[in-house]
Design a protein around this nucleic acid. Structure first.
Lengths: 150, 150
DNA sequence: GCTTGACCTCGAGTGCACTCGAGCATTTCC
DNA sequence: GGAAATGCTCGAGTGCACTCGAGGTCAAGC
């Protein structure tokens, strides 16, 4: 499954970096972490990439930016390397991620509305000249199994 | 502006921790970072909090969880301590945050739809027994002035 | 054939936001 | 009045995801 054999001419890491908006260093680091399948080398030992890698890195980027850990991305990549026997596992992994993303979006929407109410609060205060009633406090949120994102 | 003078009986850090779902350590750390206004001490040197602190910490938590940096939260807190002369600045700071949050939500929604399309892709593959056409690759995203969140 | 630039490996450093432990003081409860 | 709980400060450690520099190889253009 040498990935660069996907039609177009293979290219080096610099071009991949440009086309995906990552740094060369970051791409190499991703590879050491097992997040880039099917990288072959040319005679000089330089990495060769194909079109598929552009899409792959974009997917990795999206997953990453939505809080998937490197460990889980590594797992996903390993599954992809094992071919279609792992289709269901990959699907399920993404479905779990989807659920977490949906949850986070709901969370952020709540935060958005809190911030909006607070802005309104300041607007009222400035317009009326005296402090409006405070916003009702929210229920405390237990710190859940730690996630992270951008 | 000693904050605990807000009606209810003041309480110590342990109770605040319980009521806001943070650890005692985390609350103290927040204070060293200038994120908790109006903390007074009792005769024994222990911190005293009031109801307002519960709401304040919840707000800080929300801002934090939506990617506001400690530095910006510190700025906001400092403005709040200066009284109503800074109302406009506080409003504007929150408005800027609101814009970033809205942007991020849009971003996550895009990611969500990518993940959903990928899940459909796997479902099709499993059902038909052979690989469906690949998803079209997305435009590369330049790494923007780094943000972070939960 | 030699300079220039892209690429290589390895390993250390960075930034953020906590998190925790040590060692000590005070308070509350029996 | 003594034990146990709760609080205090200070400072070091942690985890994640990069980020970067040093020192060297390789290849393409002049």
């Amino acid at each position: 499954m040498p990935m660069p054999a996907d039609g177009g001419a293979p290219f080096h890491i610099g071009e991949l970096a440009q086309r995906t908006g990552r740094t060369v260093h970051a791409i190499r680091w991703y590879e050491t972490q097992g997040l880039v399948p099917g990288v072959v080398r040319d005679e000089g030992g330089r990495r060769l990439y194909g079109e598929l890698h552009v899409g792959w890195l974009d997917l990795m980027d999206r997953l990453r930016r939505t809080g998937m850990s490197i460990a889980e991305m590594r797992e996903y990549t390993a599954l992809a390397l094992q071919g279609k026997a792992t289709l269901r596992q990959r699907r399920d992994l993404l479905a779990a991620h989807r659920a977490r993303v949906a949850e986070t979006i709901a969370d952020w929407n709540q935060a958005l509305s809190l911030v909006e109410r607070k802005i309104d609060f300041y607007d009222d205060w400035m317009q009326s000249g005296h402090r409006p009633p405070l916003l009702p406090a929210e229920a405390p949120r237990a710190p859940p199994p730690r996630r992270k994102a951008r």
